[in-house]
């Protein structure tokens, strides 16, 4: 299979990226070049193979660690917002959100 420019546009929008015309063209050829390699995967029979999400699960059962329900984080707003682009009265400012 091979991607089209409209695929590039749809994906860029999903990813919130803005690509110029030439950038899209370039991205298209590079992604198609890449997906040629990816097609090798189709040749592999993976029926009944459990996907491996956490590497060490291959030798040992991995399960989620749970933490006690204790609230111990102090208010650190000032430090946390130090690198924020726009803050007013402790709120992060963004262009109006329309619902």
């Amino acid at each position: 299979m091979s991607l089209t420019l409209s695929d590039i546009g749809r994906i860029a929008n999903l990813a919130r990226l803005e690509l110029s015309g030439p950038q899209s063209e370039r991205m298209l050829s590079q992604l198609n070049g890449f997906f040629d390699i990816v097609e090798q995967m189709n040749a592999v029979d993976t029926t009944g193979v459990e996907p491996l999400a956490h590497p060490t699960a291959v030798i040992d059962h991995v399960s989620l660690r749970l933490r006690p329900d204790v609230a111990s984080e102090p208010n650190n707003r000032e430090a946390n917002q130090k690198s924020a682009p726009a803050v007013e009265r402790g709120l992060f400012l963004v262009p109006k959100v329309i619902e």
Binding site: V94, K96, V97
Partner: peptide, 12 residues
């Protein structure tokens, strides 16, 4: 998102 009292902006 708080839409009041920020002209043209929302506070998060």
């Amino acid at each position: 998102s708080l839409h009041e009292d920020f002209i043209g902006q929302s506070g998060i």
